[in-house]
Amino acid sequence: MINTKNLTKIYTTEEVETTALNNINLEIQQGEYAAIMGPSGCGKSTLLNVLGMIDNPTSGEYNFLGEEVSKYSERQRANLRKANIGFVFQSFNLIDELTVFENIELPLLYLGYSASQRKKRVHEVMEQIGIMPRKNHFPQQISGGEQQRVAVARAIVAKPKLILADEPTGNLDSAHGEEVMKLIGELHEAGTTIFMVTHSPDYAEYSQRIVHLFDGHIVSENIQKEFKI
């Protein structure tokens, strides 16, 4: 599903050049559950952004679902993105002006679902992750953990093939963290490909494979379990 060759991302600011990704060669199969670990600032979020096509690599090749996308225009990338990828951001990125329901609904809106379809699906997801009672609240009115769950719900509502999650449990206590991990596990069971950033070795255990990133390089990969299809 994902195949990168010498993927490099260099940030150029006025004073310094930061090589956030340095010749990343990575392959992720359809249906795989992979975790990335590494110290802060090693380039995890950057890798996720590039793989999620919301940022451009500086050089290298990136093959997504058999298409070479590194040179794609924003419009082409947007189309691929909305059909296939769900995001959970490190900082939630919920829209303050929209209610919980409306936030979760957004991806469906852009995919052109009808209002009744949207309502049904959003309710399903909210039920699934247990934020139904918060339906009409605004993000400022709910707790950090709840916001995180809303962000997850939004990522999965359109049933994407790939979920990119940047520390989806970063703001949760262990009980809620477990819940979210279970949810992701279920999605994986159902065939969704997962690529997740985490600082917690415990949560990394949920995955089949851990990619260790250091200073923009992949330093090691360990396959955890046998590949399940």
Binding site: A78, R81, F87, N93, L94, I95, D96, L106, P107, L111
Partner: peptide, 16 residues
């Protein structure tokens, strides 16, 4: 800006 970014990530086109 932030909202626009989020919407775009979620699939909004430029026209949207």
């Amino acid at each position: 800006t932030k909202e626009i970014g989020i919407r775009k990530v979620l699939g909004a086109t430029n026209l949207n």
